[in-house]
Design a protein around this nucleic acid. Structure first.
Lengths: 281, 281
DNA sequence: ATTCTTTTGTAACATTAATTCCGAAAACAA
DNA sequence: TTGTTTTCGGAATTAATGTTACAAAAGAAT
């Protein structure tokens, strides 16, 4: 498959003007193909109809159809297969193991996340969580709830007013009643989005609660109600999505909020440490 | 420059519908931007005019103008800076942020972990957890307990006999009584090692329970009782240690165990999915 | 609650682009 | 050269897209 291959196979049966079109496209693939027919034509030093005939020969119904195909190639990352594999792992790859494969996968997702989360959004989120005047509530989905717990367990030390939605889904609505307008809710929801989370988000919005949503790049429907959306890469090659990027983002938030509340935190840290942790010896 | 940067700088001043547009574009950059306004709008769950306003905010004269800019980025090969490898992104480093710093830090720890965990140990651990003849119990420390919960929530779907130590520390000893000799316990413990975990480990060993320990590279004292030890990198430059590597290792275990039990899993997956997740609409 | 401001989508509009038609030019054969 | 076939591009047609104006809805402020 792949449009480029398609061109290579077809090119011999093309007329000379059409060949020019083919070469123009291959020359700087795929950008000219994403322009208008007229621009493509002028790039190939030919006329619009020739471009259309060319595209038809490749087997596309129409020019927009052809462009759609190009775009989906870009999405699929088929583009630049040279950059696809790391340039620096030349030879002596130490044979991929489950762990190393997963590490590479997480690496990808981390960087996707880095791209998808605007700095300003991240900072706004941290500011909201840092503000000790409002309470902060944590809630996650089936799998992401563990990450909510992780965040809460740290931030509890950093500042007061940290709460979690816990227990049965059916009790969530009761718990909402404790939340005051102006408070902050951090919701985690990745695909196979959970309807109950959406319902809670709606209810929270009605109570004027500011929602920070941590989700995947396709955005949970909760984003509709969220004041801040932090999208993460989660894709893998197998059954389970990876929540590692969410976890890492969560840690980054913890770091940032800790910095913001540092003066208050250090005392608490000391106190809680002495109190709670029992030394090994 | 670069349009993505442009978006990151502008996004904070956008209205919520416009933000959705921004996120939709960042989500799979740049392909949606190359589609028609209408398609872009539907992807961002908004209307065409919002897209146009969004594009205008980015400083483009018109939508075609905006698309031209995207195309010239593709030509310039600026595309996929996300897939770029870190060591060689010398030029145009986009200034380190809290997130990017943390990502680099986690990257380090991941690779440390990769070196520290012997392939054979990892596989043995997975084999133990895969064996449905014995129950598997999960227990973590103050912060790592969330990871224990994360593992359990997945593995519960993969196989029966998954349990967690839950609730108060004081009740743990009671819970040990339920565990049969030959069962498996996965314990997570990183520095500021917890004495109570050590106590549990000792008790478990007395009951002939096989312990899999996930810890840091300095090894929790629980390692004395553990059959298998999986050490992870956790170091950071600030207050908190990072548990990301543990999380990733946990995910790798989940993947591996899922593969081993795949035939049994797929049915359970389907069943539970239908039952538990309530569809969005 | 009421007003004002801001945001957002609907619908009409204007513009641009894709497509088709057809004749001219080129290529080839006799 | 002449007739025939194929290729190609100009120009009109049609379809689609981008754009704008305006009104409804949402939200903030009083």
């Amino acid at each position: 498959m792949g449009i480029q291959n398609n061109i290579h196979e077809t090119i011999s049966s093309l007329t000379s003007a059409e060949k020019r079109a083919a070469h123009a496209l291959l020359a700087n693939y795929p950008s000219v193909g994403l322009a208008t027919v007229a621009e493509f034509a002028s790039e190939a030093a030919t006329s619009a109809p020739t471009i259309l005939r060319f595209v038809a020969r490749l087997g596309f119904e129409s020019y927009p159809d052809f462009q759609r195909a190009l775009r989906s190639e870009i999405e699929a990352g088929l583009l630049s297969p040279l950059q696809k594999r790391h340039p620096d792992t030349h030879l002596n790859e130490p044979e991929p193991t489950t762990i190393s494969q997963h590490v590479e996968c997480v690496d990808q997702n981390m960087r996707t996340t880095l791209n998808a989360v605007p700095k300003s959004e991240f900072e706004s989120a941290c500011n909201l969580i840092s503000d000790t005047k409002s309470g902060v509530y944590f809630l996650g989905g089936r799998f992401t709830d563990a990450i909510a717990a992780y965040m809460a367990s740290h931030l509890r030390i950093v500042r007061p007013g940290i709460r979690r939605f816990n227990g049965q889904v059916s009790t969530w609505n009761d718990q909402i009643l404790d939340i005051k307008p102006g408070d902050v809710a951090v919701i985690l929801d990745i695909r196979r989005y959970q309807k109950d989370l959406l319902d809670v988000a709606k209810a929270l919005t009605n109570r004027k609660v500011k929602i920070i949503l941590i989700t995947d790049v396709w955005l949970s429907p909760v984003s509709k109600y969220a004041k801040i959306v932090l999208p993460c890469g989660i894709e893998t090659e197998h059954t389970w999505d990876s929540n590692a990027a969410l976890f890492i983002l969560a840690e980054a938030i913890i770091v940032s909020v800790t910095r913001a509340n540092w003066n208050k935190t250090r005392k608490r840290l000391q106190a809680i440490e002495d109190l709670h942790w029992n030394k090994t010896e």
